[in-house]
Amino acid sequence: MTERNPDSSDEIAQFANNAFYDQSFPKLSENYEKLSQYLELNGNYLPTMTIFDSAWQRYLEKMQ
């Protein structure tokens, strides 16, 4: 959610914006598998899982 920016055309920012508005998105989860599975089944706003993988990598780098 820290990557949200409604004025950005960055893929990760757009993903974060869409996930923010997804009422069912598990926003508090820190589990890659759970988030990935949710997006594969429900993330019609995510054109490719590569975007999620990049966002996850940024998340891990920030958490270190």
Rank of each mutant, 00 (worst) to 15 (best):
G43M: 07
W56G: 07
A16F: 06
P6Q: 12
S9A: 05
K27I: 03
E33A: 15
L41F: 08
N18Q: 12
N17K: 11
P26D: 13
P47I: 00
D53Y: 13
S29Q: 07
D10Q: 01
T48H: 05
S29W: 06
E11C: 01
L46H: 06
P47L: 00
L41G: 06
T2D: 14
Q23F: 06
F20D: 13
L41I: 09
Q23N: 02
R4S: 10
M49L: 12
E30I: 12
M63P: 02
W56A: 08
Y32I: 13
F20H: 14
T50Q: 04
D7Y: 15
Y38R: 02
E30W: 11
N18E: 12
M1V: 13
Q14W: 00
E40C: 09
M63W: 13
T48V: 00
F15N: 01
L60D: 01
R4V: 10
Y59K: 13
Q23P: 00
A16R: 09
K34M: 08
I51Y: 10
N44Y: 12
L39Y: 09
S36C: 10
A55P: 02
T2M: 10
L46V: 04
A55G: 03
Q64F: 04
Q57T: 14
Y38K: 03
E11M: 02
M63Q: 15
L35K: 10
K34G: 05
F52C: 04
K27A: 08
E40Q: 13
N17Q: 10
L46F: 05
Q37H: 04
N5W: 13
Q64N: 09
E40K: 11
E61N: 05
Y59L: 14
N31A: 07
F20K: 12
S24T: 11
T50E: 08
Y59R: 14
P47V: 01
Y59G: 07
Y59I: 06
Q64Y: 07
N42I: 04
S36D: 11
D22S: 08
S24R: 13
L28Q: 11
E30K: 14
S9K: 05
Q57R: 15
K34R: 09
Y45R: 01
E30H: 15
D7G: 14
A13V: 02
S54I: 06
Q23G: 00
S9M: 03
D22K: 04
Y45M: 00
D10I: 00
T50S: 05
A13W: 00
E3T: 12
T48Y: 00
Y32T: 10
L41M: 10
Y32E: 15
P6H: 12
E3V: 09
F15L: 04
Q57M: 11
K27P: 03
Q23S: 04
N44S: 11
L39G: 07
F20L: 12
R4M: 14
D7N: 15
Q14I: 05
S29C: 03
L46G: 02
P26I: 14
N42D: 06
P6I: 15
A19H: 03
K34Y: 10
S54V: 04
A16Q: 10
R58F: 07
S8F: 07
R58Y: 08
M1Y: 13
P26K: 13
A13G: 02
L28N: 12
L46D: 05
F20W: 11
W56C: 08
A16I: 05
